[in-house]
Design a protein around this nucleic acid. Structure first.
Lengths: 337, 337
DNA sequence: GTATGGTATGAAACGCGTTTCAGAGCAAGA
DNA sequence: TCTTGCTCTGAAACGCGTTTCATACCATAC
């Protein structure tokens, strides 16, 4: 009857779910090692001990303290994902892709929203350093390369931008190539006055596109027209704004390369309201292939978000040395070019 | 010179950033308690000891192992957020709101995507039980109330649906009230054949709306027309589909209450393409006030996502006993009614 | 002159699961 | 018969920061 009183003491001392592995070991009359083996399905445990342990766990509603596991293992099964904001469909889609891959591998995501503030990105890097996350996926980088690299000793860091010149893994789209392809496509359709809209002006993606644009103009002996470039365009409303801006121009572009379907949807709406015919007065070619582009029949370059998310996750898992995965976009011809 | 050799040994033994608090204590010639005090800015540390500790930390690039802190404190500064999918703007906005509130309080979010699978929601609850997260915010519930309640002993659980009948905190919109108000508004505008579109059919929000709809019909002595109700409508494309469906109906509704701007945008687009005039042939009133509704001039009921996110977070922080915060929507009259 | 209270510091216990290592028992192979 | 080698078990060390408690000193307060 000694055991019973032991149990009663325990029940009194501990609140709901507060038993630990040592208590269970005592209760089941085995060592903590054996309890640990049962928990982790290690094969070398006899039938009877295993069931004694299971009974004790059940009786006391035992749940291991995951933080002790994390400390002991040095892993958390958490992956940090850095995005500037989560509302924008582009990042929503990316997160969706990563989250689905993570789910399959029993990893969870920690969302780190930066609003494009460098300090927030640093916090994410520090989380990696502190072992709060096992790996970090940065969807939109702000910090300098050498800063990112200096943190990569603490765990895998994966980027979503062309990093072939750096020691950091990445899954990316070759925006130089893609932009060039798109520009030639528009040119072939008869456009010589082509402009583009973009989000941030900084960053690898943007400078690749800018380079492609300038090289294209040079190759076709077209002149560079600064007013054809619209920066800081992220959302539908920014798109409407572009359309309105267009109306006031004496020398309008005849085609626009738009880096987000959201912006394209806005431009299209704005054009319709103001009597600008698409594609006759203005051709629009955009990026992403989000649902809205399907609905509005916008010609777009499909980014395979699921694939990107999966590859980013895989790279984050593998870690070891820097890998670079290029992802291909696909042109989807609809009615705006 | 003894100290130097000690240090050298340490440097050899430990890799980058692998020193722990005891090493630092030894190096600085103080106790671990004192080091801990320095780390946590406790006042009772003398100037000289503090600087000795700081010097040692710097020299060995010491960083505390956050998992040890978590284990010791029993808190992780992580809040779980359960959403069915992150792509949809509704959830994106909600996440954005919560994330911003969390940022201000130095909390991070763990995103748990369920795809409406109950097992995933259970996993989230288990994370709370395991102390992996300090609190849980469920944006779209699947599990039964008693299940949720049974887990609330492990930490605060907050819902984004009217839970005034339950012991769980919530920040919610009274969808019965709101739907009733909207229906009367449409009625006053001359509509007697009103339908609605909705996402999931299950859940508190949906049943509140359904009840409001049926009560409204009764109060106005209007007949219930099952074909006026469109379920499983989440996205723009679902909206286009509704519009196409409408064309085939002999007895069309003259107005539609749409539970998401995305769907409304799709309906509007579909109507335009098929020659259904909005609002003359079909009035559309929707929910959320997302950017797309501004751009497309959709009359909508604004949900203050920032406020909702903040309140959800606050409730998750306070925890103690169940609180219920109602949030008001605001009618924004534009051009689709 | 003594009681009181803040400052400063460290030993030890605490939170808790994992893993290494050593050892015992037993069976198949040489 | 002896050696391997697998099965099963547990003690102890490990990962590491926080917190409680006891102690000691010094300075006002009474």
């Amino acid at each position: 009857m000694k055991r019973v009183s032991e149990q009663e003491k325990l029940l009194k001392r501990k609140g709901e779910g507060m038993t630990n592995i040592r208590d269970i070991a005592k209760l089941a009359g085995v060592s903590v090692t054996t309890v640990s083996r049962v928990i982790n399905n290690h094969p070398y445990v006899s039938e009877e001990k295993a069931s004694a342990v299971k009974a004790a766990m059940k009786k006391f509603n035992y749940h291991r303290n995951i933080n002790a596991v994390h400390l002991s293992k040095g892993k958390t099964h958490l992956i940090g994902v850095v995005v500037p904001f989560s509302y924008h469909p582009y990042f929503g889609l990316l997160i969706e892709g990563i989250a689905n891959a993570a789910l399959d591998h029993n990893y969870k995501l920690v969302l780190i929203q930066t609003n494009y503030e460098e300090t927030k990105e640093m916090e994410a890097l520090r989380m990696l350093e502190d072992k709060q996350i096992d790996a970090l996926i940065i969807c939109s980088r702000i910090c300098a390369w050498h800063v990112i690299e200096s943190y990569s000793v603490y765990g895998p860091i994966v980027l979503c931008e062309d990093s072939r010149n750096n020691k950091i893994s990445s899954t990316f789209i070759d925006h130089y190539k893609t932009f060039t392809m798109a520009l030639h496509y528009l040119y072939k359709k008869g456009h010589q006055q082509i402009g583009y809209t973009i989000g941030r002006q900084t960053g690898t993606n943007s400078s690749q596109r800018d380079a492609a644009y300038k090289d294209f103009l040079t190759s076709k002996a077209l002149s560079y027209e600064p007013s054809y470039i619209f920066t800081n365009r992220f959302d539908v409303e920014d798109g409407v704004n572009v359309a309105e801006h267009l109306l006031d121009m004496k020398n309008r572009p005849t085609a626009l390369l738009v880096t987000s379907d959201q912006v394209a949807a806005g431009i299209l709406t704005g054009c319709r309201e103001n009597g600008l015919a698409v594609p006759d007065d203005l051709a629009i070619m955009s990026f992403d292939n989000q649902p809205i582009s399907r609905v509005m029949h916008i010609t777009t370059l499909e980014i395979p978000f699921v694939e990107v998310g999966e590859k980013l996750f895989q790279q984050a898992m593998n870690g070891q040395e820097a890998a670079h995965e290029e992802v291909q976009v696909r042109l989807i011809e609809r009615k705006t070019v």
